[in-house]
Write a protein that binds this DNA or RNA. Structure first.
Length: 516
RNA sequence: GGCAGGGUAGCUCAGCUGGUUAGAGCACGGCACUCAUAAUGCCGGGGUCGCGGGUUCGAGUCCCGCCCCUGCUACCA
């Protein structure tokens, strides 16, 4: 069984989860579930990035210590992920003892294999006491930090460990040029090639004043021990998550796929591969940079986030409906918009009216005309188009052209529409009026149930719970998520005993304009 | 400023190497049907294809110029 180690970015523990976080996790979950259904030994890992000055500051502002604060945030994230139905196998936290020793082991390994890659250098910049951080020229307005316009910036110089990233420019260019799949989608790849053309600068590996951090394992020549800077703490989570450097970590490493947001592409395709190369470790197969969710046409912001609360979105029609709408609306290779209006439209049109009602009418007819038992009838030519769409579904989800999760749902939607058209064209309720049409009716009913069965299997990665309910309604054996999705042409449906339950996707209760 | 991508029906988008009356879904209007969650199906209205030139028998599709939008242009992550 081929292994498939998939990770998402670890989220920064500086606030609560929002819809932006959710898009990435849901997308990765769909990929993980699809891979399991197509015969892969999947390990799906998500987690939290818990160190850094901001976390320490936020904790202090709330009157708690950093560890207690991150414990709380991590619990909130995990609660949310559980509510969303994520199927991750592991939740890594960078404040755990194993991650810390793993980071230190990686740094030591680089220092042993390439002693020149770490060197001491002084870093000089304008330091904002209010932010407790160095400020870049773009952050400075009229000589002040934008967040603290009354505090003078200090010209500070400190000695740090640096990583000789510049040395890997040619290596990275060759890597990216020779492996077009390493960074996808291609728009992001082009941006990185542009960045490499500018030449790379070395990056900090440690920082003074970084108390809430993994201690950098190499002391400075002054004897001082500094905190490990973000890249060398956060990125290695993908590796330490395998158990590195202990045990059989190399049975899982390298990862097949890192799913990340487009804003952190550079770190994942420049710094991370360079670190691994410096350590003499294998590189991940692919980094996929998804786009962002816009809220109501606006860029994600705190106020927009409040306007569209994640838990409210999940609670409205359930986690599965939210997962569906989000991935249908937001192309996974770019940006998309999310609003309550679109949510209502998509839910009502795609899920309640088209899919939910299709299941409802088909099951009702099998109950009414065949006492609930799906008749035996072989597939007919009129199902052939569905298999064209099923091929498109696989092409969207197997990674061969990127991870186009929205296209997978579009292929499913076409099959749903076709099944409704088919029902209308065949008019089984008319066939039922004349016993002479018994076989014709059998064919139509069996076809409808088969179509629904295939839909349940295809939807299982996206809507695991609802797909499972649909599968059960059809009286199909086992679980929808366990059916190998490459074997859909063998689904017959014959003899299944259907049970009409409550609507799969209830219509929203219409607002009565005369009320109130 | 530089590099990259984009501006097509009310909304979200398809339109490959130029070729008959520019498409889909949603929304909107009409009709049909009654198995179904007042659902479904069919038909229809609706677009100066950002603006201005040019090449061509013919351009949304190629060339030039302009306007507008988005992303990247590295130590918050």
């Amino acid at each position: 069984m081929p292994r498939f180690y998939i990770t998402t970015a670890i989220d920064y523990a500086n606030g609560d989860p929002h819809i932006g976080h959710a898009l990435e996790k849901i997308g990765a979950d769909v990929i993980a579930r699809y891979k399991r259904a197509t015969g892969h030994d999947v390990h799906f890992m998500i987690g939290m990035d818990e160190h850094g000055q901001k976390v320490a500051q936020t904790a202090a502002a709330q009157g708690t210590d950093a560890q207690a604060f991150t414990d709380l945030i991590a619990a909130r994230f995990q609660e949310t992920w559980s509510k969303l139905g994520l199927s991750h196998d592991q939740f890594i936290r960078t404040t755990t003892p194993h991650h810390k020793t793993g980071v230190q082991a990686l740094i030591r390994r680089i220092a042993e294999r390439n002693p020149d890659d770490f060197y001491e250098r002084s870093y000089r910049g304008l330091y904002c006491v209010g932010c407790e951080a160095f400020k870049q020229p773009t952050d400075i307005v009229d000589g002040f930090c934008q967040l603290h316009p009354t505090r003078a910036l200090e010209d500070v110089e400190e000695r740090n460990w640096f990583f000789r990233l510049s040395r890997y420019t040619d290596f990275l260019r060759a890597l990216i040029t020779d492996n077009p799949h390493f960074i996808q989608p291609s728009s992001r790849r082009n941006e990185i090639l542009g960045l490499l053309d500018q030449g790379l600068e070395d990056v900090s590996a440690s920082r003074a004043r970084l108390a809430w951090a993994v201690p950098f394992p190499l002391p400075l020549s002054t004897g001082e021990t500094q905190g490990t800077y973000v890249w060398f703490d956060a990125l290695p989570n993908y590796l330490t998550g395998t158990g590195f450097p202990d045990g059989d970590w190399d049975s899982r490493w390298p990862a097949q796929l890192h799913v990340i947001g487009k804003d952190i592409t550079r770190f994942h395709v420049v710094i991370w591969p360079a670190m691994l190369q410096a350590a003499g470790l294998p590189l991940p197969d692919q980094v996929w940079a998804h786009g962002f969710v816009q809220l109501g046409g606006e860029r994600f912001s705190k106020s927009a986030g409040v306007k569209l609360d994640l838990h409210e979105a999940i609670d409205r029609y359930g986690a599965d409906a939210f997962r569906y709408v989000l991935l249908r609306e937001v192309p996974f290779d770019g940006d998309g918009n999310f609003s309550w209006e679109r949510f209502e439209e998509r839910y009502t049109s795609d899920l309640a009216n088209s899919l939910g009602n299709l299941a409802s009418r088909a099951v009702a007819m099998v109950e009414k005309y065949r006492a609930g038992v799906v008749p035996e009838a072989p597939p007919a030519d009129d199902e052939n188009d569905d298999f064209t769409d099923i091929a498109a579904y696989h092409a969207a989800l197997d990674g061969s052209r990127g991870w186009l999760l929205h296209e997978g749902l579009a292929a499913v939607a076409r099959q749903v529409a076709r099944a409704n058209e088919y029902t209308q064209a065949m008019q089984p309720w008319q066939l039922a009026k004349d016993p002479a049409n018994e076989q014709a009716l059998d064919r139509v009913l069996a076809s409808l149930i088969r179509r629904l069965g295939r839909l349940a299997v295809q939807l299982a990665p996206y809507m695991p719970e609802r797909a499972s309910v649909l599968w059960g309604t059809l009286g199909a054996p086992g679980r929808a998520g366990d059916v190998p999705s490459h074997a859909l042409d063998r689904l017959t449906g014959s003899g299944w005993r259907v049970t009409k339950g409550i609507p799969l996707f209830p219509r929203p209760i219409p607002v009565d304009p005369t009320a109130g």
